[in-house]
């Protein structure tokens, strides 16, 4: 298991370990070993991941075959990186559409470094978008509430980009288990010209047949990860060896479970610094994934309001 710890070994060596920490590490290793044995025993679980992978690839290919001008927003987080991985598989190594990063200007430095690394590593055609107009108006976390800032710097920025590039399909990394409003999504979810989601009147979706026709100005949200859970993502990252930012792993007793703008994203208390540890932590936690994302909790139904207006 030593290889899994290697990536964060530099943080360990920096902080001199006390006896307590060492015994904790030892206990952790035992747990990890136990999980490892358990995983080998229950290989059937791999088969479910395979089903998810196959389905996501199918969705990617259906989107590319049906839309003329698609793009994939990319946040550099774990779900986004899983999407890149799946797209590479779907298109035999070449992602045939651009990736879009909506840069809020409040990105963690590591995420920007990751962006630069991944762009070369995956040979990505990358478009970076900043809502300069809103920044000029002084919109920022220093002065405004998180819902306003998120709307301006993410949703409005995306809206501007949609108007400019005229994408007819956007691939998103959202999952049903993230939030109850997302539980009601479809794999192919049409958005109106105003980027709004008419969740009351969604077309039916069955047997791999999706909504692939749009009216001018409309676009479809393509959501290959809809059926995945947070745990599935981590199991898949572990299975495939997908590179991810180091911030997901414990540094000085804290790690990030979900990554957003730095002023409003809080780490969780956790000493977990391996993928195995993350998987095990998730199996026992009862806290929701986005608990550390301030914009969701600003007011009641904040997420629903954000999403009806085009937030991912």
């Amino acid at each position: 298991m030593a290889h899994s710890i290697r990536s964060v070994a530099d943080f360990d060596s920096r902080s001199g370990k006390s006896f307590k920490e060492t015994s904790l590490l030892l206990a952790e290793s035992v747990i990890i070993l136990a999980i490892y044995v358990k995983t080998i025993q229950s290989l059937s679980f791999m088969s479910y991941l395979q089903h998810l992978e196959d389905q996501s690839i199918y969705i990617f290919r259906e989107a590319f075959a049906n839309f003329k001008n698609m793009a994939m927003p990319w946040s550099m987080g774990k779900d986004s990186n899983t999407l890149i991985w799946l797209a590479k598989k779907a298109f035999a190594g070449k992602i045939p559409f651009p990736l879009v990063h909506i840069d809020t200007t409040y990105e963690f430095p590591e995420m920007l470094a990751f962006r630069e690394w991944a762009q070369k590593h995956y040979e990505i055609d990358l478009i970076v978008i900043v809502n300069e107009e809103a920044r000029k108006r002084g919109i920022g976390y220093e002065t405004h509430d998180p819902v306003t800032v998120t709307h301006e710097l993410k949703s409005a920025a995306l809206q501007q980009a949609l108007a400019k590039y005229k994408w007819d399909a956007l691939v998103t990394g959202i999952r049903r288990d993230e939030d109850s409003t997302r539980a009601k999504e479809r794999y192919f979810s049409p958005r109106t010209a105003d980027n709004e989601w008419e969740y009351r009147d969604q077309p039916p979706e069955f047997w791999g047949q999706f909504t692939t026709a749009v009216k001018p100005g409309e676009h479809v949200r393509v959501q290959p990860l809809l059926d995945w859970t947070e745990l599935d993502i981590w199991e898949y990252i572990r299975r495939e060896g997908i590179p991810i930012p180091k911030m997901y792993f414990s540094q000085q007793g804290r790690r990030y479970r979900s990554l957003g703008c730095w002023p409003i994203t809080k780490p969780i208390e956790s000493s977990v610094d391996t993928l195995e540890g993350i998987v095990e932590e998730l199996k026992t936690t009862k806290t929701s994934e986005r608990a550390g994302r301030a914009q969701d909790h600003h007011e009641r139904n904040a997420m629903q309001k954000l999403r009806a207006k085009g937030f991912m």
Partner: peptide
């Protein structure tokens, strides 16, 4: 947050098992 070093590389993990995508496989 503090800046990151110039020679940044992300967290890398080896694959869990070769040819993870077994043909068929047991039921989910």
């Amino acid at each position: 947050p503090k800046p990151v070093p110039k020679d940044y590389v992300p967290a890398f993990f080896p694959k869990r098992q070769g040819g993870a995508r077994a043909a068929g496989g047991p039921e989910e």
